[in-house]
């Protein structure tokens, strides 16, 4: 069974759906995968593929890059699976691999033109209550087309440094708690909060006209 995605969580909070140190099902799957059972690893991949892909996608704003990096993250995780001691959850561990891999990729890509792909915007966005509210009730935003809104949003997120972008994506978009993000990034929760505050300030300044 696939775990509930952060995307499905209520919008009013970045939930902490607590992620236990290691889910029992995960523990069993990891143990079997460490013994070379590829079907167990296949289950692990299916379990976390959407969250890993989604995080990478928001960091890169490019579907092809996200697809390649997500696959690469799972391949690397398989190679390093024997060294996984279970100190953290598999979920945290695979996130850490994916985020580090993506940050390295972004640093290499920094000089390239970033490609913002908005073609994958889900049609359901237009029916989202928050979206409807944003574009209808708040007068200044009424005229902003959905695509333009996403474009502005993506462009603003891409302007953040990799570290700040990662924190915003993991917390405000993926819904991970500060402690979980701190484990993924191997820093303390205070640093996560600090980065989040700074990143939000920057985003707010860049997107102020959309939020008045």
């Amino acid at each position: 069974m696939v775990a509930a995605l952060p995307m499905d969580l209520p919008a009013d909070h970045a939930v902490p759906a607590h992620v236990p140190p290691m889910d029992l099902a995960d523990r069993d799957l990891v143990r079997r995968a460490q013994a070379g059972d590829k079907s167990a690893y296949d289950d692990l991949v299916r379990r976390y593929q959407e969250r890993v892909y989604s995080t990478i996608y928001h960091m890169t704003s490019n579907h092809e890059d996200a697809s390649d990096l997500a696959q690469d993250s799972f391949v690397r995780a398989w190679s390093a699976l024997r060294s996984f001691k279970g100190d953290s959850s598999f979920y945290t561990w695979i996130y850490r691999i994916a985020v580090n891999r993506t940050i390295n990729f972004l640093k290499q890509r920094r000089n390239r033109t970033s490609h913002l792909s908005l073609n994958d915007l889900e049609v359901g966005t237009e029916n989202d209550p928050e979206m409807v509210e944003l574009v209808s009730h708040k007068t200044p935003r009424r005229d902003a087309a959905l695509s333009e809104l996403h474009q502005r949003l993506n462009a603003a997120i891409q302007k953040l440094s990799e570290e700040h972008r990662t924190v915003v994506i993991l917390h405000d978009i993926q819904g991970l708690p500060h402690e979980e993000i701190a484990q993924i990034l191997r820093c303390n929760p205070g640093t996560v909060r600090s980065r989040l505050f700074y990143a939000r300030q920057q985003l707010q300044a860049w997107l102020s006209d959309l939020m008045k």
Binding site: Y57, L153, I157, I169, L207, M211
Partner: peptide, 19 residues
């Protein structure tokens, strides 16, 4: 307001059948 704006990103999905 910013946080609610950012939640819109959750609607971005890969092409159908990708997973």
């Amino acid at each position: 307001s910013l946080r609610r704006l950012l939640t819109l990103k959750r609607h971005e999905k890969p092409p159908p059948g990708f997973f």
